[in-house]
Amino acid sequence: MIINNLKLIREKKKISQSELAALLEVSRQTINGIEKNKYNPSLQLALKIAYYLNTPLEDIFQ
């Protein structure tokens, strides 16, 4: 099972779900679904998340 630290990292960087969704060009519901482990992001989306949060991919999804 993948450990998902997206919410923790996003909140630590003081970025809202809506702000991150806008940067990634996805819906806020997509971010919410990823954070609640209801949706697994594509590799492309996971890499974009890591880029915009300036955090290694391995720290977000373990």
Rank of each mutant, 00 (worst) to 15 (best):
M1T: 13
Y51P: 00
I49D: 00
T30Y: 15
K13F: 12
Q17H: 03
A50P: 00
F61E: 01
Y51M: 11
N4M: 05
E19Q: 14
R28A: 13
L23A: 15
A22Q: 10
L53K: 01
R28M: 13
A50V: 04
Y39T: 09
N5E: 03
Q44E: 14
K13C: 12
S42K: 06
N4L: 05
E25W: 07
I9S: 03
N32A: 15
P41W: 04
A50H: 03
R28H: 08
V26N: 01
A46G: 06
I2H: 10
E58K: 12
K48N: 06
N5C: 11
V26Q: 02
I2T: 10
Y39I: 15
R10S: 02
Q17K: 07
K48Y: 04
L43I: 11
K13Q: 13
N32P: 01
E58M: 09
A22L: 12
L57V: 13
L6G: 01
S42A: 06
T55I: 07
K7S: 08
P41M: 05
D59E: 14
E58C: 13
I9W: 07
D59Q: 14
L8R: 14
K36P: 02
Y51C: 09
I60N: 00
Y39M: 11
P56C: 07
K38V: 12
L53C: 03
Y39L: 13
N4E: 03
I9Q: 04
I15N: 01
I31M: 05
R10A: 04
I9K: 01
L24E: 00
I2L: 10
E19H: 13
F61Y: 04
T55F: 06
L43S: 06
I2N: 08
K12R: 13
T55L: 07
G33M: 15
Q17Y: 04
K13N: 11
S42P: 12
M1R: 11
E25P: 04
R10T: 02
F61C: 04
R28F: 11
K7A: 11
Q44G: 12
E25I: 07
L20S: 00
L43M: 11
N40G: 12
K36S: 13
I3R: 14
I49Q: 00
K7C: 08
P41L: 08
I15P: 01
I2F: 12
L24D: 00
I15V: 10
T30D: 05
L53D: 01
S16L: 05
T55W: 05
Y51L: 08
Y51H: 11
A21L: 02
K48G: 06
Q62T: 11
Y52H: 12
P56H: 06
N54M: 09
E35V: 01
E35W: 00
K7D: 03
K12M: 14
A22H: 11
L6W: 00
F61I: 04
V26A: 03
N37S: 12
D59V: 11
L8T: 14
S42C: 07
L20R: 00
N40T: 15
Y52G: 03
R10E: 02
Y39H: 10
Y51G: 06
L6S: 01
I15R: 03
R10M: 08
E35C: 04
L6R: 01
M1V: 13
I9M: 07
L8P: 07
P41F: 07
I2A: 10
I9P: 01
N32M: 13
P56I: 06
R10L: 07
A21G: 05
L23F: 13
K48M: 07
K12Y: 09
L23G: 08
S16G: 07
Q62E: 10
Q17C: 03
N37V: 04
N4R: 03
I31K: 00
I2P: 10
M1Q: 13
L47K: 12
L53F: 07
I34W: 09
P41A: 06
Y52W: 09
Y39F: 14
M1A: 12
A21D: 01
D59N: 09
L45D: 03
L45N: 01
N37T: 07
I34T: 02
E11G: 07
N37Q: 13
L20C: 03
I2S: 10
N5S: 06
K7V: 06
L47R: 10
P56N: 08
N40W: 15
L45W: 02
T55D: 02
L24Y: 01
Y51F: 12
I9V: 10
Y51S: 07
P41T: 05
N37K: 10
Q62D: 09
Y51V: 07
A46M: 15
I3G: 12
Q29G: 12
K48F: 04
L8A: 15
Q17A: 08
S16Y: 03
D59M: 13
N5H: 09
N40H: 14
L8G: 10
E11T: 11
N37F: 10
Y51I: 08
K36N: 15
Y51E: 09
Q62H: 11
Q44S: 13
S27P: 13
L20H: 01
I2Q: 09
L20D: 00
A46H: 01
K38M: 14
D59T: 09
E11R: 08
I31W: 00
A50K: 02
S18M: 12
S27H: 06
I9A: 07
S18I: 13
K38N: 11
D59G: 06
L47G: 05
M1Y: 12
L6A: 02
I3L: 12
L6Y: 00
S16W: 05
T30A: 07
D59L: 12
L57D: 02
N4S: 04
N4V: 05
K7F: 05
L57C: 08
A22V: 11
I34F: 05
L45I: 07
L53N: 00
A21C: 04
I49T: 01
L8S: 15
K13S: 08
I34S: 01
N54F: 05
S18L: 11
R28T: 14
L24K: 01
K14N: 15
R10N: 01
L6M: 10
K14C: 11
L8D: 11
I49R: 00
Q17E: 04
E35G: 01
L24W: 00
L47F: 07
E11V: 09
S18E: 14
K36F: 06
L6I: 09
L47Y: 08
A22T: 15
S27L: 04
A22I: 10
Q62C: 11
L24Q: 00
L47D: 05
N32C: 07
I49F: 03
I15G: 01
V26D: 01
S16C: 04
L45E: 03
I9R: 02
S27D: 11
L53M: 06
Y39E: 07
K7I: 05
S16I: 03
Y51N: 07
I60V: 06
N37Y: 09
P41S: 03
S18V: 13
A50L: 03
T30M: 13
S18P: 06
E35A: 03
N5D: 04
L23P: 00
I31D: 00
S42Q: 05
A46R: 12
N40Q: 15
P41N: 01
L8V: 15
N4Q: 04
I9T: 05
L53E: 00
I60C: 02
K12Q: 13
A22W: 07
V26C: 07
D59F: 10
N54Y: 05
L45Y: 01
R28K: 13
K7L: 07
K36Q: 14
Q17W: 05
K14Y: 07
N40S: 14
A22M: 13
L6H: 02
V26R: 01
L47S: 09
E19T: 12
L20E: 00
N32V: 15
L43Q: 10
G33C: 15
K48T: 04
I3H: 13
Y52M: 10
K13L: 14
N5M: 06
L53G: 00
R10F: 05
P56W: 04
K14G: 15
L45P: 00
I9C: 07
P41Q: 01
I60W: 03
G33W: 14
L57K: 03
Y52V: 15
M1G: 12
E25G: 15
K12V: 07
E58D: 09
A22C: 11
G33D: 15
K48R: 10
A21N: 02
S18R: 15
L8Y: 10
D59W: 07
D59Y: 10
L45G: 00
K12C: 12
S27Q: 05
N54V: 05
F61V: 03
I15D: 00
A46C: 13
I31Y: 05
L23R: 09
L57T: 04
Y51T: 08
I15C: 07
I60S: 01
L23W: 14
I31P: 00
K7W: 05
K48L: 09
I2W: 10
K14H: 13
V26T: 06
R10K: 01
L23D: 06
P41V: 09
D59H: 11
L24M: 06
D59C: 14
I34M: 05
S16R: 06
T30E: 08
I2G: 10
E35Q: 00
Q29K: 13
P41I: 11
I9L: 09
L6C: 06
L23V: 13
